[in-house]
């Protein structure tokens, strides 16, 4: 399934809802989206991954790049994910230590910082 992306604002947070497959083929589209958001001044981003069906190392790289971009603006990047198959990838790579991962968008939006 192709990548789908939609964004909306909740307070000072920008929610990016991602669906489908984030892989070596589609990751550049997500990268562009994150770069656009940061360059437009959206520095607190929540990436909702509940509808992501596939994530590979290229996708992980784009998320890490996004995190670095928002941190350079004193911003934050939080993930929303409860899918075990996706969480497993964050555990194996140690990236669970880098990203705040929340169970719901509401929880991510109300988190400090």
């Amino acid at each position: 399934m192709e990548l789908s992306l939609s964004t909306r604002a909740e307070g000072d947070r920008t929610i990016v809802e991602v669906g489908g497959e984030i892989d070596v083929y589609t990751a550049p589209t997500l990268r562009e989206q994150l770069i656009d958001l940061v360059s437009q001044g959206h520095q607190h981003i929540v990436v909702d991954m509940e509808r992501v069906e596939f994530l590979d190392s290229t996708g992980l790289g784009v998320l890490v790049g996004g995190l670095k971009r928002v941190r350079a603006q004193d911003g934050s990047l939080r993930l929303v994910c409860t899918q075990e198959r996706i969480l497993k990838i964050f555990r194996i790579t140690g990236l669970e230590k880098v990203f705040p991962i929340h169970a719901t968008v509401a929880e991510a939006v109300s988190a400090e910082g």
Binding site: V24, R31, I35, S57, T58, L60, G61, V62, V64, G65, G66, L67, K68, R69, R71, A72, Q73, T93, G94, L95, K97, V98
Partner: peptide, 26 residues
Amino acid sequence: PVALVAASAAGTGSAEDAEIAEDSIA
């Protein structure tokens, strides 16, 4: 990954920095 992300906090935080992190992870 922790070191990779921390490096930018101390560094310039440039777009180039972010791209290097993306490539290193991938």
